[in-house]
């Protein structure tokens, strides 16, 4: 059971598609991730704490002059948003199956 849960958690964290192209400034990438997060927050009640952390860390890295690190974190945040969206989609269809009969 625990291995199954781990597999699901890992699967959800990894299956997010890479949503960014290489173009644009790092600040724009961070802005895009923030906008995606806010959009999802409006659409559903699913939000992960790790997404906010990644966005904050990206902003901090950019301020510190670490462009490469900031961009990586922005992409990570976007991936987390996509994984959250997928979770919301799966759960809207499957939660009822866990209700004992």
């Amino acid at each position: 059971m625990r291995n199954g849960l781990k597999t699901i958690a890992l699967g959800l964290a990894l299956i997010a598609p890479v949503s960014f192209a290489g173009s644009g400034t790092t600040a724009e990438h961070i802005e895009a991730a923030t906008a995606a997060y806010k959009k999802l927050a409006k659409e559903s009640s699913y939000q992960w704490t790790t997404t906010v952390k990644a966005i904050k860390a990206a902003k901090k890295a950019l301020e510190a002059g670490d462009d490469k690190g900031a961009r990586k974190l922005a992409h990570q945040a976007m991936d987390l948003v996509e994984a959250t969206r997928l979770q919301a989609k799966i759960e809207s269809e499957t939660w009822r199956m866990r209700v004992p009969k």
Partner: peptide, 13 residues
């Protein structure tokens, strides 16, 4: 991910 999620609900309905 999907199979794992679905398998949790086998005994449920």
């Amino acid at each position: 991910a999907l199979v794992g999620t679905l398998s949790l609900g086998i005994a449920f309905g």
